[in-house]
Amino acid sequence: MKKDDCIFCKIAAGEIPSRKIYEDSDLIAIMDLNPTSKGHSLIIPKEHCTNIYDIDEDIAAKVMKTAKKLATKMTVALNCDGFNLLQNNGETAGQTMFHFHMHLIPRYKDADNNMLKFTSVSFSDEEMDAIRDQIIKD
């Protein structure tokens, strides 16, 4: 299903030009228009899905297989020193385009802002146990 007001659906349908690096019957991979590094690209399912919560499981698996293939190829072609795969879900998590997509971000030793930074938070052992119990509860 295509969503008429979705830019990524329009790119996947060829209605908006893009710099494709990969395409098959289910996915398209394009260079990001606002890259954070040389080669920063996106894998986008052709069928509209908003995020990880509503993507078809087979397509999600295909996204990851394609990410591995492209990351390997891009690492050699671009001579990068590392690689990030990033996928955001929901505005609070940084999602700005509400069509599932995975970022392929080559990283270079001498580049500015080379690493994604995470701030650690602390939880007591009891809190960690309670969080685990929430997650594994049926």
Score class of each variant (00 low, 15 high):
S37V: 10
I55M: 15
D112P: 09
A12K: 10
I44M: 11
A13Y: 00
K38P: 01
T75R: 12
T50D: 10
C80D: 10
A71W: 04
D5Y: 06
D24L: 04
D110Y: 01
D54H: 07
V76M: 00
A29Y: 00
D125P: 00
T119Q: 15
F98R: 03
V63H: 01
I131V: 14
C6R: 04
K69T: 10
T72C: 02
K109P: 05
Q134S: 10
K69G: 00
S120Q: 08
C6Y: 05
M74N: 06
D133A: 13
D58W: 06
Y108A: 02
I52M: 13
S41D: 03
A67Q: 05
L86Q: 13
D26S: 07
F98D: 15
T75V: 04
E57P: 03
V76N: 01
D5T: 14
Q134C: 11
T36E: 09
P45S: 11
V76C: 02
A12E: 15
D54E: 08
T96F: 02
F123Y: 13
K62V: 03
C9R: 06
F123C: 07
G39P: 12
K109W: 11
D81E: 10
M64R: 04
K20I: 04
N89K: 06
P106M: 07
C80Q: 08
A111F: 02
I135Q: 12
K137E: 14
M74P: 10
I11W: 02
D138N: 15
S120H: 03
K69L: 12
L27M: 00
